[in-house]
């Protein structure tokens, strides 16, 4: 599925200073029954966001109108657990384009990159600075610069660089995906298949 190209993103951010946010929290299994990729944003963080009677939980950050933006900032080990890509779909569908944390679970990170969300890994110290900046001013903006691989707290000018492999970076900046690329390698793939004992 096509996604928006990623270049430089300037936005306020939603803070979620919780550690080990697993994919069952991002989207509980009972919302995985669709056969199309539609509407997952409505159930993002469902059980943290809504009471059992579907009324919003007032103290949850997504229900607090002070916070908004295309960047989600989360505590360490974000996205652990299930491989459900639905978690990344829900985040994208809700309107986030970038998740910042000091540590990501592997599968979540890969899924995000595959669907056009940029996971930005920062140091624990820098993450703390971002949380403090948002606490001081909920409208404070971050700049995520993919070409330069930097993230900046615009109010203070504090900046950190982040890693991403060149191949994925190029994909994100151009809206490419792996499926097309793999189609171009079919001859090589046939050779490996033929040489396998299985």
């Amino acid at each position: 599925m096509a996604y928006d190209k990623f270049n430089i993103l300037k936005s306020s951010a939603v803070p979620m200073p919780i550690e080990n946010v697993d994919t069952d929290q991002i989207i509980p299994a009972r919302f995985l029954k669709a056969t199309e990729r539609k509407g997952f944003g409505d159930n993002l963080f469902r059980d943290w966001r809504y009471n059992a009677d579907d009324t919003p939980k007032k103290d949850f950050v997504l229900n607090n109108p002070i916070y908004s933006g295309k960047i989600l900032v989360a505590g360490k080990n974000f996205g652990s657990g299930s491989s459900r890509e639905h978690a990344a779909w829900a985040i994208y569908d809700y309107g986030f384009r970038c998740v910042v944390s000091s540590f990501f679970a592997d599968i979540f990170k890969g899924n995000s990159l595959n669907i056009g969300i940029l996971p930005v890994t920062v140091s624990a110290e820098f993450l703390d600075k971002i949380f403090k900046a948002i606490e001081a001013d909920p409208k404070t903006e971050l700049e995520v610069n993919l070409p330069a691989q930097t993230i900046t707290i615009l109010a203070t000018g504090e900046k950190e660089s982040f890693d991403i492999n060149g191949y994925k970076k190029n994909n994100l900046m151009n809206g490419y995906d792996d499926i097309d690329f793999l189609q171009s390698l079919k001859d090589d793939i046939q050779k490996v298949a033929a040489s396998s004992i299985y």
Partner: peptide, 13 residues
């Protein structure tokens, strides 16, 4: 384990 985009990759390539 893989995500659904990767399921599509494996099916197609």
């Amino acid at each position: 384990g893989i995500g659904t985009s990767e399921v599509e990759m494996v099916l197609s390539s």
